[in-house]
Simulated assay, not measured.
Amino acid sequence: MTSRQRLLKRSFDIIVSAIALTCLWWIILIAFIIAAIETRGNGFFVQTRVGLNGQLFSLFKIKTMRPSATHMTTITTSNDPRVTFSGRFFRRTKIDELPQLFNVLIGDMSLVGPRPDVIGYADRLQGIDSRILMLRPGITGPATLKYKNEEMLLAAQKDPKRYNDEIIWPDKVRINGNYFDTWSFQQDLIYLWRTISS
């Protein structure tokens, strides 16, 4: 990706995220209040993720899960008992993802790119695969679209974490590597449209 392409991508991120936040702030506020009441805590879920050049940042989402002493994994399935009643709706409609528009606006993320991973995945990429870290992580992207039903897929596995680590994660690395190699602004627009329309 050239400097000009990076500038185009970043400019588009700033403009679209600013407009989206202006239009959708009230939905985020209502979701925040509902989540705070149901979880009896902060309505925002804040988690450290791996971003551009391997730098860590705080990702913002609407909280959709209760803390659990018996379920400590970061892998979430569709039948996860930690997910709240409102959380299932927020996750199904992707409302829980809306606060990430703020991450996009301040430069932690992009609208389109590899999903930001928790520590222990992207930060361990080696060799040519590490080129993925040269991209800002995105709200959506080709891997996200392919695995939009990831939670249901994981729920059907006997060992969800092992399936994620051995099957899904390597495939996402391959897809995101191809995204890096073949990036175009037009393709980003297509991924955004597919995300919004699906």
Rank of each mutant, 00 (worst) to 15 (best):
S3G: 10
Q5L: 14
Q5N: 13
R6K: 15
L8V: 15
R10E: 12
V16F: 09
A18R: 01
A20I: 03
W25R: 05
W26M: 11
W26K: 05
I30H: 03
I30F: 10
I30A: 15
I33L: 14
I34C: 06
T39M: 04
R40H: 13
R40F: 08
G41K: 01
F45A: 04
G51V: 06
N53T: 02
Q55S: 13
L56E: 12
I62F: 01
I62A: 04
K63W: 01
T64V: 02
A69S: 14
M72H: 15
T73D: 11
P81K: 10
P81F: 05
R82H: 08
R82E: 10
F85D: 14
S86P: 00
F89P: 00
F90L: 13
F90R: 03
R91P: 06
R92P: 00
T93K: 04
I95Y: 01
L98W: 04
N103P: 04
I106C: 11
G107V: 12
S110Q: 11
V112L: 08
P114C: 10
P114W: 04
D123P: 00
D123G: 03
L125I: 06
D129Q: 13
L135R: 09
R136F: 02
L145D: 07
Y147R: 04
A155V: 05
P160G: 05
K161I: 04
Y163P: 01
E166R: 06
W169D: 11
P170E: 09
D171N: 15
R174W: 02
N176C: 13
N178H: 11
D181E: 15
W193V: 08
S197D: 10
S198N: 14
